[in-house]
Each structure stands twice: as structure tokens, then as C-alpha cells.
């Protein structure tokens, strides 16, 4: 698996682990939510810890932790199970998380724009992924109709900004 991030395919430097011993080894680790909850006092000392969230997880469980976690992995059991889209937005918009949010699961290029808009900034993809296909989808639409976790201005505001600036100039 590679990681698609910032428009490029990069090597994933994080290791997924499932026990405390491995989690405390040097290097970035991604731990299951239960492990984090059980060992968070120990794990908090370590800088590079990410938490893997099931897509039905209660996001309040991490309410005090978002500023201590370096990454959050959201789970897509299938490409059509869209619960994590809501999780991503809430984690960004409600909890103000600014670390990496990555998508794990069989999502496809055609969903990239939605993922980005909801605040996901990294996607685990097969090594032979056609990056151009993903990027094309991310760039495809010249406008958006609704606000989300990104900074694109929805059409219903943009229209009037354009009008206002046209009048001003």
C-alpha cells in the first residue's frame, strides 16, 4: 500500500500495530481505538501516534485527545458505506482536528473529491494506483454547491461575491 497525499503517491511511513509493545517502538504507529482508550496515558507521551476509528465510533470518546493525536484513520468497509464521510467532517469542523485524516478501505478515484471535501487528506491506495485518475477527479468540478470541511466557497455565496466585487470595481 502507498499513500496518496498532497497530490502525490508517497511511501507510507506509519505502521499499523495492535499492541502496546509495538506501539511504543520508534516511528509512527497507527493503533486501534480500543488500544488508544486503554493506554492513552502511556501513548500520549509519544509524538507520532495515529488512531484507527471504526466508522460507527462515538467521536466524543476522543474529545480530549484530538490535539494530541497526529493522525486519524477512517474506515471504509466498502466503497458505498459512507459513514466515515460524516466522521471526517465532524472531526475537522467540530473538533478542529488538523492532523492527517486518512481513508482506509476500497474507496476509488471517483470518490476522491468527496473525501477531500470532507476533510480527508490522505488515502491508502495500492502501489500501482493511477494517480492522474485520482487527481483528475479532484479537479473536475469548477464550483461547489455546499460548504464542507474544505475552504471552497459554495455557489450561493460565490455568486453574490462576484456580484459585489463587480459593483465595487
Amino acid at each position: 500500500m502507498a499513500l496518496l497525499k498532497n497530490g502525490r503517491l508517497i511511501q507510507d511511513r506509519w505502521t499499523t500495530v495492535d499492541n502496546l509493545t509495538d506501539a511504543l517502538k520508534p516511528g509512527g504507529v497507527l493503533v486501534p481505538l480500543e488500544l488508544w482508550l486503554a493506554e492513552r496515558d502511556t501513548l500520549r507521551g509519544k509524538s507520532a501516534v495515529g488512531v484507527i476509528l471504526p466508522n460507527d465510533a462515538d467521536l466524543d470518546l476522543l474529545a480530549d485527545d484530538y490535539d494530541r493525536i497526529a493522525a486519524i484513520v477512517l474506515t471504509f468497509p466498502s466503497m458505498v458505506d459512507g459513514r466515515a464521510f460524516s466522521q471526517a467532517r465532524l472531526i475537522r469542523e467540530r473538533f478542529g482536528f488538523d492532523g492527517e485524516i486518512r481513508a482506509r478501505g476500497p474507496v476509488i478515484a471517483d470518490q476522491y473529491l468527496y473525501l477531500l471535501r470532507c476533510g480527508v487528506d490522505a488515502v491508502e491506495v495500492p502501489d500501482d494506483t493511477n494517480v492522474e485518475s485520482w487527481l483528475r477527479n479532484a479537479r473536475r468540478f469548477s464550483a461547489v454547491y455546499q460548504p464542507a470541511a474544505d475552504d471552497r466557497i459554495p455557489a450561493y455565496r460565490r455568486r453574490h461575491l462576484v456580484a459585489a466585487s463587480a459593483i465595487a470595481s
Partner: peptide, 16 residues
């Protein structure tokens, strides 16, 4: 029409 626009390509609600 307002709902049509808001719901079109809604990034969060396309895989309900």
C-alpha cells in the same frame, strides 16, 4: 431549487 443545488454532489451524503 435551493435543495436541488445543496444536494447535488453533496460530499457527505452521496453514499447514504
Amino acid at each position: 431549487e435551493i435543495i436541488r443545488q445543496w444536494s447535488t454532489f453533496h460530499p457527505e451524503f452521496t453514499f447514504l
